[in-house]
Amino acid sequence: MTMILPEDFADLEPFVADWTPATSAERAARRSAASATALAAFHDAMAPRLDAALVWLDARPLADLDPAGRNLLGLCLMLAHVALAVETQGQDEPRHALQREVMRITRTPADP
């Protein structure tokens, strides 16, 4: 059976479908499209697991991650964006999303 996430992180499986876009620009767009409730739910579930997830991932070469490892990495990278919405922008997030829209991300080291 193919694992969706590494065994220790199975509790995060419900988030994989919605919160693992492939590129930085898509992660930024996913953040902007999400409701405050959805952002908070993902942040509250993922933020306490970030340290453990990065420890698990750092023990493996980035280029050789299996699909479950890649999903876990995707959740970590998504959290980078969602944390800015929840921890920094707060109530300003919906208005801020409109301002961000025109700042087009064209490449990052994380992009495939």
Partner: peptide, 25 residues
């Protein structure tokens, strides 16, 4: 990116800088 931690840091730093720059336009 040497490892996942460095990739996470670079993603956050980019997104944070973009958040700031988006506010000026």
């Amino acid at each position: 990116d040497a490892d996942a931690s460095e990739r996470f840091a670079r993603e956050y730093v980019m997104a944070m800088a973009r958040d700031v720059h988006a506010e000026d336009r």
